[in-house]
Amino acid sequence: MQRNSIGKDHQLTIRMVMTGLMLFIAYIALFGILLISGLPLFLVLGMGIAMVFFQYFMSDKLVLKTTGAKPVTAEEQPKLHGMIERLSQVGGIPKPRTVAIMDIEAPNAFATGRSPNHATVAVTTGLLNRLNDDELEGVIGHELAHIKNRDVMVMTWASLIVVIAGFLMQMLFWMSLFGGFGGHRREGNGGQAAMIMMAVYVGVIVIYFVSQILISTLSRYRELAADREGAIMTGSPSNLASALNKISGQIAQIPEKDLRQVEHANAFFIIPALQGNAIASLMSSHPKTEVRIDRLMEMQRQNWHLLR
């Protein structure tokens, strides 16, 4: 397996292109089905695009609202702002408009916004408390790489097919409930129409699930690409590898709460470890942490910094 060219991972690029091609085929199949079925193509398409547009333009505000992330100023968080500003310069993107913090113990971070000019980077207090400066830089680099790679745009538009297929699934479900599949049996060809609509329904369901898998696959590849891009920004792949090691797996389960606080609250929570399985990993939006760490450490082993 060759990944010698440091700024690029050709194998990863080929995989992303292949996934994109398969998504394109899924789109064509869906439109084909729509045309055959005689369903209102433009209505369905229009609604899907409207929903995706809404998501695309409102993503930053929506995410901030739903996660409870609070924007912080450079005066409040000078270290975090300074780090983001410096890495943005290295990455050749404008500093994200909003830097936010979520008061959550679980270590995590995200980037959102439709373009580098409308970007938001948010981190949890758990992340700030657990990681040292180098590791935090690794995570920020990864999030800025998402912004640089315009991943919000890519993934939002890629998911249009799932939105449309999902909408169609619901529409066909309600039609089947209210007898729409059968047509008018007295006219003689109601049975045939019902068969066609059943086939359309099954086709849409298949496309929906295949597209979900393809989008999750694409998302995992985008994550790996952001790991690589972020590592190049910070100049040290091992920083992100070390951060990933801390924020996922065993270390992430260790609570920050004081034993006496828990004792007073009289609550001992035992959180079961998440068990992975094949289906879950297929639908997962992120690659396995071990895979990410292995790739980053492989970058670290190469004299890649000489080629920056």
Binding site: Q250, Q253, I254, K257, D258, L259, F269, I270, I271, A273
Partner: peptide, 10 residues
């Protein structure tokens, strides 16, 4: 203890 119960003590 499971990791989730490794509470801190300041």
């Amino acid at each position: 203890e499971p990791h989730a119960n490794w509470y801190s003590l300041s």
